[in-house]
């Protein structure tokens, strides 16, 4: 016998199930009057700095069918590369931008959409700059533990080429699964980010 380490085990994950919206976006699924609005629905205030963009896409299963019951959260830096978090030590983030969004995939089409701003660059732990990116977390029925990935911007070629995290992807053929193309829409630029859970173009997911 040896002395015990006074450590606890992390509570095990369980699937969010098909009714995750009751808990996380109740107004969206018709349970009105409990909360004034769903958390994470609006990320950008009228005075927020930076380029307004939309990020849209789908989450596809191994048969290529979009998930109509998934829930996605995103977390990102502001236009200056700072996070609106008490744990941000490098400066004070734009108070008009939350940096955190939560959206369900549409019950009919499977599409999700975030109205946000394009983030600035954030340093890697050794001080090199990462390319601009948005952190994604995906839960749904059939997903036993939330999936972490990142979305990068196709129009940031130079930054992407030197990003220390993208450099960690061993099979370079998989890097494009993390990069969203940009289109100029009537309401502003839209980046399309389809997340593939399985199959030939399976998205790179992270253990962070």
């Amino acid at each position: 016998m040896v002395q015990k380490l006074d450590m606890l085990k992390e509570t095990a994950s369980q699937t969010a199930g098909p009714y995750v919206h009751i808990g996380l976006t109740p107004n969206w699924c018709g349970i009105g009057g409990v909360y004034p609005e769903d958390l994470g629905r609006v990320m950008v205030g009228p005075k927020a700095k930076g380029e307004r963009i939309a990020v849209a896409g789908r989450v596809l299963d191994g048969s290529g069918t979009p998930l109509k019951d998934a829930l996605i959260e995103i977390w990102q830096a502001d236009a200056a590369g700072l996070h609106n978090s008490p744990l941000e030590r490098r400066g004070v983030a734009d108070p008009h931008f939350t940096g955190w969004g939560r959206q369900p995939t549409d019950g009919a089409t499977g599409e999700f959409r975030f109205e946000t701003i394009k983030p600035g660059r954030v340093p890697y732990k050794d001080g090199r700059l990462q390319a601009p990116h948005i952190t994604f977390w995906i839960v749904a029925r059939g997903i036993n533990i939330g999936l972490h990935t990142r979305m990068y911007f196709a129009d940031e070629e130079a930054a992407n080429a030197e990003c220390p995290v993208l450099a960690r992807v061993e099979h370079k053929v998989r890097v494009p699964t993390l990069i969203a193309p940009r289109a100029e829409g009537g309401a502003g630029p839209v980046y399309t980010f389809d997340i593939r859970l399985q199959g030939e173009k399976e998205t790179v997911f992270f253990d962070i």
Binding site: D61, G62, S63, T65, L67, W75, Q76, A77, H83, N84, S85, L87, E88, R90, T98, G99, W100, V122, P123, Y124, K125, Q130, H133, T135, A140, R141, G142, I143, N144, L147, H148, R150, V165, R168, V169, R174, L197, Q198, E202, T203, V204, F205, F206, D207, I208
Partner: peptide
């Protein structure tokens, strides 16, 4: 079965992007 990634997860020591939060 159809919603489970089959590739290994890419291990990444947290960067400030994940070590912060709302």
């Amino acid at each position: 079965v159809l919603r489970s990634p089959q590739h290994a997860l890419l291990s990444l020591e947290g960067t400030v992007s994940e070590m912060t939060g709302p």
